[in-house]
Design a protein around this nucleic acid. Structure first.
Ligand code: MN
Ligand code: MN
Ligand code: ZN
Ligand code: ZN
Lengths: 138, 138
DNA sequence: CATCGTGTTGCAAGTGATTTGCATTTAACA
DNA sequence: TGTTAAATGCAAATCACTTGCAACACGATG
């Protein structure tokens, strides 16, 4: 468990509970973004009983602290991945099997071709959305 | 009602029903992406009675035919916008008021700066995801 | 180490968006 | 106009996610 994570929790007035540690362990052991249900399932497989609501509450809280990033792939559910020690990046998902691959790029140039070369995927489309504050809300 | 749309429907073995025409009219009269609930509400305001399920079924079908594009802004609901006669583009949404603005760009270079200059928004983050077919599913 | 205050959790119930089953229309065309 | 597949309304069902609340557990303090 990284110190930076512990520090962030402390700074946010959060406790390092047993269930929370278990969730973080799952997240840190996973390179790819996972859903709340997946985290819950892996916990069960590791014989750690925990309510799904607790998983959701923690993922939300960790996101608010900036410790995990949300990944929306239009699957009807959100995914999350730990930020700690990893570069900002994007993903590509196969429409057939749902497989997700990290794209360790972002400057977004020669986009599609580069993505195809790098992943061997056949790019069919992409989703790009920005978020921010408009003049009225600034 | 554009001929290209009628042709696509026919090609897909779809009927041009009264409710369907009403939905398409709403979509075509809207520059920005709308939710199923919004379409439903605008129909009601125009004194067109229709079940929400019908709206959903049509939006899904129109998307499958490639007549509308889905727009996911992590609002907990999907948005849709007609494709007909419009360039491929992206969006920016204000985290404060939810206002959505079309970004008539895509080559994605000098990304954030260009977006900020063009919209006067303060970009806080963005979501970029690709979709395609992996080697195993090709 | 015992105590206290606040954050946390489990459990059950609640939401909100989207989907589905089915009997009843309706569009398309012969 | 008759036939048939597609479409619709309505009600119920899913699904992902959230929330209320009482019991519980960190972790700071003495
Ligand atoms: Mn990733
Ligand atoms: Mn648009
Ligand atoms: Zn990026
Ligand atoms: Zn694009």
């Amino acid at each position: 468990m990284a110190d930076s994570i512990i520090d962030s929790l402390k700074a946010g007035g959060k406790k390092l509970t047993k269930p929370r540690q278990a969730i973080l362990a799952i997240l840190e052991s996973n390179a790819l973004p996972v859903t709340a249900a997946e985290v819950h399932a892996r916990l069960k497989k590791a014989h750690v009983h925990m309510d799904l609501a607790t998983v959701y509450r923690n993922l939300t809280m960790l996101q608010e602290l900036g410790l995990v990033d949300p990944v929306g792939l239009r699957e009807g559910q959100m995914r999350y991945e730990v930020r700690h020690g990893r570069e900002h990046h994007h993903h590509i998902q196969c429409r057939g099997c749902g497989r997700i691959v990290d794209l360790m790029l972002c400057p977004l140039k020669k986009l599609t071709q580069l993505v195809e070369t790098q992943t061997k995927f056949a790019v069919e489309g992409h989703s790009l959305e920005f978020f921010g504050w408009c003049p009225q809300c600034r």
